[in-house]
Design a binder for these strands. Structure first.
Length: 285
RNA sequence: GGGGAGAUACCAAAGUGGCCAACUGGGGCAGACUGUAAAUCUGCUGGCGUACGCCUUCGUAGGUUCGAAUCCUGCUCUCCCCA
């Protein structure tokens, strides 16, 4: 008989990892990361992996879905959903308590709420071609292929393109995963506290080797544009290293960007609650 | 001490007699989100009101005018140049 999943979520810098590690130590758990950027190897400081935190009073806590792909590649929600279910079964097979921990709201929902994703991989060439068309042309084209009533496919340009991609591929198989019974725990910090923690942590990281980390990724041959694609720390530090921003401009805009990101994370969590998912909010440990 | 420039909403910055509660950008707030999600996109942003609307704003005190953020005068402050 396997144990229900526990999910620890919260905005960036709220202390999720610390909370989850302590919990894992108490109830014999293993941690599954729900972080869209910690999957990449060598991207440590900027993604806040804090691998040395996965040890509580001398006991190592197992973690999963961290350092699983090469930097410069593009991991995505479909792969995450697949990898999550694989790891979940393994942990349950060991009779251990699975603990999902992270701040990527979409990944958490895809994992636990049984998202059904079409088995159609992104088609870069097709996307590039569709990018040339106007919004109206895209919609007309989609309309010529399938009825458009009652659909969210036309909500945004991006969605129209994805809908076209799926429709044109002609593959309508959907990957199905079960709803995972989950107990959600949210780390509660006030807005003011959140901002303070973010600023403090950013300063420490900037002075603690983050610039060097980004430089070493560039030295490794990762393209600047790929690092910029990863956003936040990698984006702004790359812009600084390549001379597009001064140090203080980088610091300031990165600070702001992380605040905005944390806010979007909270919006997602509120949305989950509005959809009927119960989240039990707790103080950071 | 003399000369010049300027003070606009959280910040920057337009506006230079009525179309101004005031362009735009940033920030902030709220929302969306099913193969980019640390991404991408949308709305709001003086106060009160559901709304027609009402009230208080453009350094400050007066003045001109039917009407002023916009014109005039005094004052305060900031910046630049000369001494």
């Amino acid at each position: 008989m396997s144990k229900d999943l526990i999910c620890v979520l919260g905005p960036t810098a709220s202390g999720k990892t610390k909370y989850a590690v302590k919990l894992a130590h108490e109830i014999d758990g293993e941690i599954i990361s729900a972080d869209s950027r910690q999957v990449y190897k060598y991207m440590d400081i900027g993604t806040g992996k804090d691998l040395d935190e996965y040890n509580f009073k001398g006991v190592d806590i197992p973690y999963h879905l961290i350092d699983i792909v090469q930097p410069g590649t593009k991991y995505n929600i479909f792969e995450y959903q697949r990898d999550f279910h694989k790891v979940l079964l393994e942990i349950q097979g060991r009779g251990k308590q699975p603990i999902l921990c992270g701040g990527s709201g979409l990944y958490i929902e895809a994992a636990t709420q049984g998202y059904s994703l079409p088995q159609v991989a992104p088609n870069i060439a097709l996307r590039a071609e569709l990018e040339q068309l106007s919004d109206q042309e895209l919609i007309s084209r989609l309309e010529s292929l399938k009825p458009l009533h009652n659909t969210s496919d036309t909500d945004s340009r991006k969605r129209v393109i994805r809908a076209l991609e799926i429709t044109i591929s002609g593959d309508f198989n959907i990957q199905k995963y079960p709803l995972v019974p989950t107990c959600f725990i949210g780390i509660l910090v006030t807005r003011q506290e959140r901002i303070k923690r973010i600023d403090k942590r950013l300063k420490e990281r900037l002075e603690g080797g983050m610039i060097e980390e980004v430089q070493s990724l560039l030295d490794r041959g990762i393209l600047a544009e790929d690092l910029i694609y990863y956003g936040l720390e990698y984006k702004f530090v790359t812009l600084y290293i390549t001379g597009k921003l001064s140090y203080s401009e980088m610091h300031k805009s990165l600070e702001t960007a992380i605040h905005q990101f944390a806010k979007r994370q909270m919006t997602w969590f509120r949305r989950m609650e509005r959809k009927g998912i119960k989240i039990e909010w707790k103080e950071p440990v």
